Simulated assay, not measured.
Amino acid sequence: MTAPFHIINSDGAAPWVLACDHATNRVPPDVAEGDLGLPPADMSRHIAFDIGAAGVTRELSRLLGAPAILSDFSRLVIDPNRGEDDPTLLMKLYDGTIIPGNRHADAEERARRVALFHRPYHEALAGLLEARGAASVTCGIHSFTPQLRGRPPRPWQIGVLFEEDRRLSDPFVARLRAEPDLCIGLNEPYPGGYPGDTMDRHARARGRPSLLIEIRNDLISDEVGQAYWAARLAPLMQAALEDANHAQPA
């Protein structure tokens, strides 16, 4: 079995470590023989992965000179952005769609997928951060669908999610607000975090500054959009990090 993640730019000198938890819709052959029973149209939806997030992450990694980790399994296999005891770790119904390959997944199958995919991904991310020591900064890159079924349209282009530690999110939001054409969501379209999720586990619990960025996926559905938004966000991220460092007491 190959590693359930890809690491790129591992020697990047930047303090940033980028994490793309939902990089792909791939179902490895170790799970339901590689087919969760959904048609291609559903596997191409946001329920299976964060559309465009991988491309943005790769380009941000290049622009920032930062290492990045990208999952190599669909969030429907097991969700790396959930704690191991989270009830939504293995979804059987998502945005109105039943997941046939998960329908009869029991506690044993859930534990097997955690061991095969979820845990190795987080161990690798922890290793990247520890290699950078106290100066490391975690950044999660996600995308969101413009509209859930039966819900209102989501107007935001960019969402910034945060909880109590706002050392990095506040200066980043300030930088975004200086861009007159952006519609920004604060803790939109989701709340700031869940116990045991990626930012909680690797940043908040360890006192590391962190940033969690959500981009509306219709803006980054192709390479042109991915390159545009990465190029636009990279200098704002770097400026926000400098702002945050300057704001810390000497």
Rank of each mutant, 00 (worst) to 15 (best):
T97H: 15
I99Q: 01
I99C: 00
I99N: 00
G101T: 08
G101F: 07
N102A: 12
N102H: 14
R103V: 08
H104K: 14
H104S: 15
A105L: 12
D106E: 07
A107E: 14
A107T: 11
E109N: 07
R110P: 02
R110G: 12
R110M: 10
R110T: 13
R112A: 14
R113P: 02
V114M: 14
A115N: 13
A115D: 15
F117D: 01
H118I: 01
R119T: 13
A126Q: 15
G127I: 06
L128V: 08
L129G: 03
E130L: 13
A131Y: 13
A131G: 11
G133E: 10
G133Q: 13
A134M: 10
A135T: 10
G140E: 04
I141Y: 04
I141V: 14
H142V: 01
F144M: 02
Q147K: 11
Q147I: 08
L148C: 04
L148P: 00
R151Y: 11
R151T: 12
P152Y: 07
R154Q: 10
P155K: 00
W156I: 05
Q157Y: 05
Q157W: 02
I158C: 08
G159Y: 03
E164F: 08
R166T: 12
L168V: 04
V173G: 01
A174F: 03
A174T: 11
R177S: 09
R177F: 01
G185L: 05
N187K: 06
P189H: 00
P189M: 00
P189F: 00
Y190R: 05
Y190N: 03
P191W: 07
P191K: 10
P191M: 10
G192P: 01
G192M: 02
G193W: 03
Y194D: 07
P195V: 13
T198P: 10
H202S: 03
H202N: 02
H202D: 00
A203I: 05
R204K: 11
A205W: 03
A205G: 08
R208F: 14
P209D: 13
L211Q: 04
L212S: 11
E214N: 09
R216D: 07
R216N: 13
D218L: 08
D218A: 08
D222F: 04
E223I: 10
V224T: 14
G225D: 06
Q226G: 11
W229I: 02
W229Q: 05
L233S: 07
A234S: 09
P235H: 12
L236Y: 12
L236T: 14
L236A: 09
L236C: 09
M237Y: 09
Q238A: 13
Q238R: 15
A239G: 13
A239W: 10
A239K: 10
A239E: 15
A240L: 01
